[in-house]
């Protein structure tokens, strides 16, 4: 499975467009991390817990998008975009979407 955010893959021909595929994941960290993060907000710096959280979510979102693409017989997802939104306090949604295609 090829995942890119370009439109045209050099040297390859798109034979079929299979429409939009998407993957999303909403995750939260336990309250201890939230408390540490609010302490960290005083001093600034990287919130390792949240970096990790978003990273995990992003991976899951991509893997869900890939399973949608696989389910409809695509072998690549082009023009992938990510969007992050905070859905509830302490929970963030990672959303990935792209065009499923069959490459030659």
């Amino acid at each position: 499975m090829m995942i890119t955010n370009i439109e045209i893959v050099p040297g390859k021909q798109i034979t079929k467009h299979l429409g939009l595929v998407q993957g999303s994941s909403v995750r939260a960290k336990h309250v201890g991390r939230d408390i540490m993060a609010s302490l960290k907000n005083i001093f600034g710096g990287e919130l390792k817990g949240y970096t990790e959280l978003l990273q995990e979510s992003r991976e899951e979102a991509v893997s869900r998008m890939v399973s949608q693409a696989e389910a409809i017989g695509a072998n690549a997802v082009l023009n992938v975009r990510f969007s992050t939104s905070s859905i509830a306090a302490g929970a963030a949604e990672l959303f990935a979407y792209g065009t499923a295609v069959v490459l030659d």
């Binding site: 995750r27 939260a28 336990h30 939230d34 899951e60 509830a88 929970a91």
Partner: peptide
């Protein structure tokens, strides 16, 4: 959000 993990309610 207290325990952490996948928030299935919002999925």
């Amino acid at each position: 959000t207290l325990i952490g993990g996948r928030v299935t309610s919002y999925e």
